[in-house]
């Protein structure tokens, strides 16, 4: 996949060229492409004071950044303490079997990515699953799988 380098240049112009701006620049790149393409890192390094090694170091250090493409909807199962105690493992298992993929993988049609996250801070609704920015609380195995059914039947818009 080749990316439009003009988009990267626009982000750099907006966020800044100084090495201290590495994280906001990369966050904007990921917002745009849903992952950080290696080409973007090369382009940023070529046009700013940041180096490829700094950018790659930052991308691989922070868990927010991804170097590979993701599905249209990221399904994040919260594995915070309250969710763990409340059965988060079962939700991951249920979603794995519903989506036919393992935790961390994309569905072959690139509609969903299944992921585990540390804590989304909605502990009183544990266990929870987040689809993009929407939180679903007080789930069990069945309800977790049903979320996907609802997204599927609404054509992904819900």
């Amino acid at each position: 996949m080749t990316i439009d380098l003009a988009l990267i240049d626009a982000i750099v112009t907006d966020k800044g060229v100084d090495p201290t701006r590495a994280i906001p620049v990369l966050q904007a790149v990921q917002d745009k492409f849903r992952h950080v393409p290696l080409q973007a890192i090369e382009r940023i390094a070529a046009t700013t004071e940041m180096t490829e090694s700094q950018l790659y170091g930052v991308v691989t250090f922070y868990s927010q950044f991804r170097l590979t493409p993701v599905g249209e909807k990221i399904v994040k199962v919260c594995h915070g303490t309250a969710c763990h105690v409340g059965g988060a493992e079962g939700l991951t298992e249920s979603l794995e079997s519903r989506l036919g993929i393992k935790d961390g993988e994309n569905t072959p049609d690139m509609k969903y990515t299944l992921d585990s996250v540390a804590c989304v801070g909605c502990c009183s609704l544990a266990p929870v699953v987040m689809v993009e920015d929407k939180v679903f609380g007080k789930l069990d195995r069945k309800k977790a799988a049903k979320i996907i059914d609802e997204y599927d039947s609404s054509g992904g818009s819900r």
Binding site: H79, G80, A118, C119, G121, C122, C123
Partner: peptide, 8 residues
């Protein structure tokens, strides 16, 4: 940067 799981 409230990172403790179980804290909000």
């Amino acid at each position: 940067d409230e990172g403790d799981p179980g804290a909000f």
